[in-house]
């Protein structure tokens, strides 16, 4: 006889049916498509059902360069996804701007506007890396508790599930980052001026 808790059954079911949003931004999207194809076959991990509508998706794979023109749409899509929802930042561009960081129209990391659960480095990451990122997310889901102080964001009534959508200003996004989610870290190598 197998004894198990409700929480484990709940998490086991959730983590093996993570449905991503069918949503590609740039080069990484091609590797994302390749990882769903016969050779890499993401279906083995329960994530082959790419949903075209955010209302049916659990996971947003931010696959590629996020431009400032595209940020409001991405945040809006994130807001439209039902809880519990997760975000994978796939590739260097989604993490930090990557090779295009010096660009005037490139957001320097999607974690300035929405919370990111798993970062996958690479330019673009190989399909194996995406699958590893997905498995890391599954591990994370499996460890989430439903009660207690360490319960995740979606189980807390006071935590937001939607984030403000930035606007387009005359020179830049307004505001350029969401201070409620992301604050500029200061490098230990740098000594503050003054």
């Amino acid at each position: 006889m197998v004894l198990t808790s409700l929480q484990e059954v709940y998490n086991w079911g959730r983590k093996n049916s993570v449905w991503p949003l069918q949503f590609g931004l740039a080069c990484c999207a091609i590797e994302m498509i390749a990882s769903t194809m016969a050779r890499y076959d993401m279906a083995r991990f329960g994530s082959e059902v790419f949903r075209p509508s955010p209302r049916q998706a659990d996971l947003m794979i931010v696959s590629g360069t996020v431009t400032k023109k595209m940020v409001p749409q991405i945040v809006r899509l994130y807001n439209q996804m039902p809880e519990p929802k997760y975000v994978i930042a796939m590739g260097a561009c989604a993490i930090s701007g990557g090779p295009f960081k010096q660009g005037y129209n490139v957001l320097k990391g999607i974690d300035r506007f929405i919370p990111v659960d798993v970062h996958i480095p690479g330019c673009p990451p190989r399909p194996e890396a995406l699958i590893h990122g997905l498995m890391t997310l599954q591990k994370k889901i499996g460890l989430q508790s439903l009660t207690g102080d360490d319960r995740p964001r979606h189980a807390r009534a006071d935590e937001p599930s939607e984030f403000p959508i930035p606007g387009h200003g005359e020179h830049d996004l307004i505001p350029p980052r969401n201070p409620g989610i992301w604050q500029a870290p200061v490098s230990p190598r740098l000594k503050p001026a003054g």
């Binding site: 992301w182 604050q183 500029a184 870290p185 200061v186 490098s187 740098l190 503050p192 001026a193 003054g194």
Partner: peptide
């Protein structure tokens, strides 16, 4: 980055 860093803004990590 140095010009932007203000005194008292210490600490690393990816934010709250």
């Amino acid at each position: 980055a140095l010009a932007r860093a203000k005194p008292g803004e210490a600490g690393c990590g990816s934010g709250a």
